[in-house]
């Protein structure tokens, strides 16, 4: 049966080669480019430099960095606050509607977030649905300026990313061993203590998994600030886009991406540590 390893070798070779070139090598190129000198006429100048990283942490860019972190962080927090009760209720549900409810949760996961962002524009416009509705109810008398504000960007981000928080949380909470709660209650813990000391710590891997899926896209989905926000270079994604397609400073754009990847790495390690002793399958 000598030639029988052919199939195995072929399968392993094709996937390894593909990801080796288009994922690993391509990313190593970004890492490499981030240490090269920018040159407006070509991809980069073949000279080692740390200047892209020092530029990045100078005044102008550091503001975008912090703003981006702040907005993505707030978005993640909102998603946890809105998504946790949702996932908790859904995980406890036994009704015959459950399959449908789960399907409705999965649909935003796979359908175009660009289209959903565009739909949000129509809602938030000055003469849009929300303003008309509020005026109709008599709550406000003049339309609010919602579109092209940071609030609109935040609403757009939460709207698009909330399902990405709920799904890993749901996966985590559904596997929850209910006997632990009964044990806590038997030992005299109240509702609040049971939640903060038992349920919350055990659902931490789910929260972290959801946070990775929300925080990183929240910093990089450049079309959301573009369609809903006023300031163009609001998020890291817009900054990277500008470096690559507008000002043609690829090494700087690469350095921003490498920094972003480092943030991802830290979050992944945190998730790994928190789920080390568990099955760790909170990612979908």
């Amino acid at each position: 049966m000598k030639g029988d390893n052919n199939f195995r070798n072929f399968s392993v070779a094709i996937i390894s080669t593909w990801l080796g070139i288009f994922a690993l090598f391509a990313f190593l190129l970004v890492l490499f480019a981030s240490f090269m000198q920018p040159d407006s006429n070509k991809i980069f100048n073949f000279h080692f430099t740390l200047s892209n990283y020092t530029t990045l942490f100078s005044s102008l860019y550091v503001i975008v960095f912090f703003k981006s972190f702040y907005i993505a962080g707030a978005c993640t927090l909102f998603c946890i606050l809105l998504g946790y009760p949702f996932a908790y209720i859904l995980a406890r549900k036994t009704s015959r509607w459950k399959d449908l409810l789960l399907l409705l949760l999965i649909i935003p996961f796979w359908t175009s977030s660009l289209i959903r962002s565009y739909a949000m524009v129509a809602i938030l416009k000055t003469k849009g649905v929300l303003n008309n509705f509020l005026i109709h109810l008599g709550i406000i008398h003049h339309p609010l300026q919602l579109l092209f504000t940071n609030t609109a960007v935040m609403i757009g981000l939460v709207y698009n990313l909330l399902p990405f928080m709920i799904l890993p949380l749901y996966a985590n909470l559904e596997k929850f061993d209910n006997r632990l709660i009964e044990a806590a209650r038997d030992l005299g813990a109240g509702k609040v203590r049971t939640f903060t000391k038992v349920i919350l710590p055990l659902s931490l891997p789910g929260i972290l998994a959801g946070s990775i899926l929300v925080f990183l896209p929240a910093m990089t989905l450049f079309y959301i600030p573009d369609l809903l926000g006023g300031a163009k270079a609001l998020l890291l994604g817009n900054l990277i886009e500008n470096q690559f397609l507008l000002t043609h400073n690829w090494p700087l754009g690469s350095a921003i991406s490498v920094t972003l990847t480092a943030v991802m790495g830290i979050m992944l390690v945190a998730h790994w540590l928190s789920s080390k002793n568990r099955s760790g399958e909170d990612f979908l």
């Binding site: 070139i21 391509a26 190129l29 990183l216 990277i240 991406s257 991802m264 992944l268």
Partner: peptide, 17 residues
């Protein structure tokens, strides 16, 4: 890692490649 990598990083790394 590819599943959680922000799309923009994959986009620019392929553009560079």
């Amino acid at each position: 890692i590819l599943i959680v990598t922000p799309d923009i990083v994959m986009g620019i790394s392929l553009l560079l490649l």
